[in-house]
């Protein structure tokens, strides 16, 4: 495996007495698609929220590009090159599709307050470049035709693509996708997964969260399985599909059920 880009070490996240994550470690290699799967409530989304700084972990350490980011605020982590999408769409509904993507570029746009307030040539130039870049990104995900529409007018699947486009706009090193295929039909799912594969081939590192393992497993380089806040298995997709503990977590034990 290539070098490690994102490393979580013994992450614990307790909400009162509930141990949402109980000592989970994760090591994401550069330019791979790393999938975290697990049944509902296994701690996948919590893991994402800890990695991106929305939750402050009860214990453990996170390193990104070799730098400790434990306890950093989301906007700082974002500036360092981590981007994410959300399980439930979190677009800016009243903004246009194009503007949504440009907000994603926030930390890459170099405008000082006064250059923006007075619309100095430097700021005007930054704006022009940002709009051009945003249009390119939207073309990549196939939303160019809807540039000027408000984001709220998009269909659900398009909204998911826009979330990916917006995340890409920040020029991230690693992209965290929280159930990108949720609520999509099989052909839409395939479209999204092909896009994700394309992004990875272009040099991006991807971390995926998914509860339906069939959807993503064929696209993954590495799979981590969580259950009840603990890592129960990790390995290549093929190994995972045959892993006893994983099957038990998803389907339960046959004998116990029939007893």
């Amino acid at each position: 495996m290539s070098q490690v880009l994102l490393e979580a070490d013994q992450i614990k996240m307790y909400f009162g007495g509930i141990k949402a994550l109980d000592g989970v470690s994760l090591s994401v290699g550069s330019q791979t698609i790393h999938t975290v799967i697990g049944p509902n409530g296994s701690g996948k989304s919590t893991m994402f929220n800890v990695l991106t700084g929305f939750y402050r972990a009860t214990g453990g350490h996170i390193a990104f590009c070799g730098k400790e980011i434990t306890g950093s605020a989301p906007h700082r982590i974002s500036e360092m090159g981590m981007a994410r999408t959300f399980q439930t769409l979190r677009l800016f509904p009243e903004m246009t599709v194009l503007e949504n993507v440009i907000v994603g570029m926030h930390s890459r746009i170099r405008e000082t307050f006064w250059s923006a307030a007075l619309h100095l040539p430097s700021a005007a130039n930054e704006e022009r470049v940002a709009y051009e870049k945003a249009e390119q990104i939207l073309e990549m995900v196939g939303l160019s035709a809807k540039n000027r529409q408000p984001a709220k007018s998009l269909a659900y699947g398009e909204g998911r693509l826009l979330e990916i486009a917006r995340a890409m706009a920040s020029e991230p090193k690693v992209l965290l996708l929280d159930e990108p295929a949720a609520g999509m039909n099989p052909s839409e799912t395939k479209q999204v997964m092909e896009l994700i594969r394309k992004l990875c081939q272009r040099g991006l590192t991807i971390v995926l969260v998914e509860h339906d393992m069939k959807v993503v497993i064929s696209y993954s380089d590495m799979v981590t399985v969580l259950d009840h806040g603990k890592k129960i298995a990790e390995g290549a997709p093929k190994e995972i599909l045959q892993n006893e503990a994983v099957i038990t977590a998803y389907l339960g034990k046959r004998r116990e059920h029939h007893a």
Partner: peptide
């Protein structure tokens, strides 16, 4: 007008529209 059409104005609207996503886009809310 200038501020609204800059990263500053967009950041404010992003906060209004979706605080959490705004934060994740690198905006210090």
């Amino acid at each position: 007008v200038n501020l609204v059409n800059s990263k500053f104005g967009r950041a404010l609207v992003a906060i209004r529209e979706q605080k959490i996503a705004a934060n994740m886009m690198g905006i210090d809310v």
